[in-house]
Design a protein around this nucleic acid. Structure first.
Lengths: 114, 114
DNA sequence: TATTATACTTACTTTTTTGTTAGATTTGCT
DNA sequence: AGCAAATCTAACAAAAAAGTAAGTATAATA
């Protein structure tokens, strides 16, 4: 009596989970959203999340790009320069993400962290 | 130049991640939210998420309970009966979760799911 | 000539998460 | 006596995620 695999793939909740429910994605989205210019370079992002390894930041960025939430612009210079920013799609998501963040702040007391 | 561990713990984004950014939590929260009575038993939940093992459902429920998003009511009968429902805290979160779900439906096309 | 800067990738190890299967519990029904 | 029902837990294995350290590229600079 299992649902078909296809149904799983079209489930919006599972999509949300696949796209940005992980350890670092929300931090990246928030950082880009909160930045003045809306554009950040790799190292700049890394400074905002310095307990994230380069490897993890790199793969998180790739995932977000794959899901069309951020875009990546490469400048062919040396040393390399790469800029990340939210896509329109990513921007459209941010109000909901910010909703969660505000909720978390308001309900900080109701929480056992760890 | 690392931030202190304490700052990490008070970061609302990290709290959101710790509480319900995982494979099954959103499904559980949504199921409880969407149910007529607002109350569901273990087996009933399991039927809604039949690709989740009992073990994973059990540990997901524990985590949500620990974070005060759901409550667990045990009836001392045989066979056992346990009812799960959203706490007030959990209910206060649902509008934001639903926001994400609606967003995911609207942006279904913009997505590469795997 | 050696060093620096930036944005990674690769290889390897460790940790965490998830899956699988079996078992515990105990009352009532056949 | 034997089995079903409901809600788990335990033990072990497999898979996935994450951490760590080192390496790549190349032009400009000291």
């Amino acid at each position: 009596m299992k649902e078909s695999r296809v149904e799983y793939l079209t489930c919006p909740i599972r999509q949300v989970v696949a796209k940005f429910c992980d350890k670092w994605s929300l931090l990246v989205l928030y950082s880009l959203h909160a930045s003045d210019t809306g554009v950040m370079r790799f190292t700049e992002l890394h400074k905002h999340m310095d307990d994230c390894s380069q490897k993890m930041l790199s793969s998180t960025l790739k995932n977000l790009e794959k899901h069309n939430l951020i875009s990546r612009k490469v400048y062919p210079v040396v040393p390399p320069k790469v800029e990340y920013s939210l896509t329109d799609n990513g921007k459209s998501l941010m109000p909901y993400i910010m909703g969660l963040i505000v909720w978390a702040k308001e309900h900080f007391e109701d929480v056992a962290v760890l």
